[in-house]
Design a protein around this nucleic acid. Structure first.
Lengths: 238, 238
DNA sequence: CAGTGGTCTAGACCACGAC
DNA sequence: TCGTGGTCTAGACCACTGA
């Protein structure tokens, strides 16, 4: 996709690891060998290796080499910075999305704060449920700043809003603040979800930013307890 | 702590942001100005800025500059890669730790798999509760590979095992796989925790690795529902 | 000892935004 | 057009590992 040299090297090696061509627990070629093999400088190779390291593919060990890790990375079915559709596809899960609400509204003080906008701005409200094996297990309540997202349709919301934002509107989703808590179910949860008798629900709150650091979206993803799972790879930062 | 040039620049700028000397939503000096100010090359400045970006301090905008973000980063009271003590201190929370179990054992097949060790290895089991405002709200069940951690004492477990590993044993905690789910309470939970009537519990599972990619620890952190909160800063990886 | 990854430099060209 | 951050290069020295 991106045409960087280091990014394409990253993708190449990552693909080799995922396909098993590069075996787990074995050593990568040294940085010097890689720079020769890819016909590039060592610094560029290092950028690619750092990406692999950050994404949990390899571990670099000083004076020894880089070894391939075997951490299952692609199994975090929690919506967040990645669009729900992308995650579902990656995990190979089949979900059906139903749009329950889609309209423009004025933000209350809570939304004004979460989206850092004034009372005069307008926002889209989108309420969707995600259904799997006949059970509605996730309720997504999303709010988009209308200034950045002038038009939204039921079709877009049923497919992928992120694909629309990035593909059609040319907006770049860049980063997010994510918060996970467990809370008591609301009447809304009971209305829209098949709660299976649970009185609590996992709430994932997301404030999503564009690459110019503007807030574009606030979403509450409400997951049924037993269907929630979040997997992360984290490096120790000092 | 570390003597890198780019790391000390990172820490310097991060401190300026946290102290408010660099105001939120304002621009940093350009990379050229910074490299002159710090008397270093631009690539070194860029390494420092990338750290700031990865940690949620700034957002870099091409052809414009780097702006200071105002994402509250230091509020994730969930044990994980950072030691419980470090997190508690950062959040300014007072916890009291009680060691309930501390002994050496043979790993069952579950632990053999989680720690990737053979049945002949030995592991430390450490069970601790964390108490706040008179309530025992977190149960940590940790298993350390004895090969790497020969001696453990009640005093170490009450203080900080990580400080012992890194300070005394000179081991480098490097990365972890983390998984968050919600499960039904066990009798053990009911024995050790003040569950306040809840029938479910948040379980955070951690597989912790050293910098040579060896697994050293598997921990189950069991949090009372209403006291659990996980906050993350995530960049879109694409 | 040679090879490794970690750091650092002083250049270079590019695409893009603002003026 | 000028300044910005993004990419890339071809060196260099270091500390450490392993033979």
């Amino acid at each position: 996709m991106v045409t960087n040299k280091y990014d394409s090297i990253y993708q190449d090696i990552a693909a080799q690891i995922e396909s098993g061509k590069l075996k787990k627990h074995t050593k990568l070629p040294s940085e010097n060998e890689l720079s020769e093999a890819y016909g590039t400088s060592r610094e560029t190779i290092r950028k690619a290796l750092n990406l692999l390291s950050q994404h949990g593919y390899i571990q670099k060990i000083k004076a020894k080499g880089s070894i391939v890790l075997d951490i299952g990375r692609f199994d975090f079915p929690v919506s967040g910075l990645t669009s729900f559709k992308e995650v579902a596809e990656k995990v190979g899960q089949q979900f059906h999305t139903t749009v329950h609400e889609l309209y423009v509204m004025k933000p209350d003080s809570f939304l004004q704060n979460e989206l850092k906008i004034s009372a005069k701005e307008e926002v889209w409200k989108v309420a969707r449920t995600r259904e799997k094996d006949g059970e509605r297990i996730i309720l997504d309540k999303s709010f988009f700043v209308k200034k950045y997202v002038p038009g939204l349709t039921k079709e877009i919301c049923e497919d992928s809003i992120y694909a629309y934002l990035e593909g059609d509107l040319n907006l770049n989703i860049s980063f997010a603040r994510k918060e996970i808590t467990v809370e008591e179910c609301t009447d809304e949860d009971r209305t829209y979800l098949d709660l299976n008798g649970y009185n609590h629900i996992v709430v994932v709150r997301n404030n999503v930013f564009l690459d110019n650091a503007s807030l574009i979206e606030y979403t509450e993803s409400r997951h049924r307890l037993d269907k929630f799972r979040f997997v992360d790879f984290a490096r120790r930062s000092r």
